[in-house]
Amino acid sequence: MTLFSLICSDYRKYKKYGANGFVIIFLTQGFWAQFQYRIAHFFHTKIRWQPFRILVMLPMYFWQKGIEIMTGISIPASAQIGHSFYIAHFGGIILNSNTILGNNCNISQGVTIGVSGLGEKRGVPVIGDNVYIGANAVIAGKIKVNDNSLIGACSLVSNDVPENSVVVGVPAVVVSDKTSKGYI
């Protein structure tokens, strides 16, 4: 997808969730962070010539830090996020720079997606399509959160999450196969 189509897909998702009007959506902190991420990620992936890359990415870095300070949302340019991404509430959202997040995902406030583990098990999660991540959830380690999954609020996910499942708790365990339908 092009940069413009990715921003449009995010915009449509915000509109779907009730942020009516162009001005209202651009006053939403989650959208600010996504908009900045989309532009920074575009330049991060397209510009390879080192002297020019530094000149372009330095302002992107400061822009990201400004957004991070204002909103509490940290999305590095090197993260990979699919289309129709939605941040439900702002504050305390941290994504590792190696995060891979699929299409049509929702995350809530306080979510951390980070590195964990030792040796061969050290790494960052890969999150599939249509995944809902509840408030204050932590997803860490070299794991896979499969498609159509729901991660409950305040859960610690450190093992693979099967497709079409609902996980909750510390550590998170599968409690249902109702999927994320209705939450996305």
Rank of each mutant, 00 (worst) to 15 (best):
residue 73 I to F: 06
residue 86 Y to E: 00
residue 92 G to V: 11
residue 121 K to Q: 08
residue 115 V to A: 11
residue 69 I to M: 12
residue 84 S to R: 14
residue 86 Y to H: 15
residue 95 L to F: 15
residue 110 G to Q: 06
residue 74 S to I: 11
residue 121 K to N: 12
residue 94 I to A: 13
residue 94 I to T: 12
residue 138 V to G: 01
residue 140 A to R: 12
residue 94 I to M: 14
residue 72 G to Y: 07
residue 118 L to V: 12
residue 134 G to Y: 06
residue 133 I to Q: 05
residue 106 N to R: 14
residue 85 F to V: 06
residue 141 G to A: 10
residue 130 N to R: 14
residue 114 G to Q: 07
residue 124 V to H: 10
residue 80 Q to C: 14
residue 68 E to P: 00
residue 142 K to W: 02
residue 135 A to V: 12
residue 142 K to E: 03
residue 129 D to S: 11
residue 112 T to K: 11
residue 118 L to M: 09
residue 70 M to W: 14
residue 88 A to I: 05
residue 70 M to Q: 09
residue 105 C to R: 05
residue 124 V to F: 12
residue 135 A to D: 00
residue 142 K to N: 15
residue 81 I to N: 03
residue 123 G to H: 08
residue 133 I to A: 01
residue 101 L to T: 07
residue 107 I to E: 01
residue 95 L to Y: 08
residue 115 V to Q: 15
residue 102 G to D: 06
residue 139 I to Q: 03
residue 138 V to A: 08
residue 106 N to A: 08
residue 78 S to Y: 08
residue 107 I to W: 06
residue 129 D to V: 08
residue 135 A to Y: 04
residue 103 N to Q: 13
residue 94 I to C: 10
residue 135 A to H: 12
residue 102 G to H: 09
residue 86 Y to T: 01
residue 139 I to A: 03
residue 81 I to M: 10
residue 128 G to I: 06
residue 114 G to V: 07
residue 96 N to L: 07
residue 117 G to H: 11
residue 99 T to N: 08
residue 132 Y to M: 04
residue 131 V to Q: 00
residue 70 M to A: 15
residue 126 V to P: 01
residue 126 V to M: 11
residue 112 T to E: 04
residue 77 A to P: 02
residue 116 S to N: 15
residue 107 I to M: 15
residue 119 G to D: 02
residue 140 A to Q: 13
residue 71 T to Y: 03
residue 140 A to E: 09
residue 104 N to H: 15
residue 114 G to D: 07
residue 102 G to S: 07
residue 114 G to S: 07
residue 100 I to L: 14
residue 106 N to E: 01
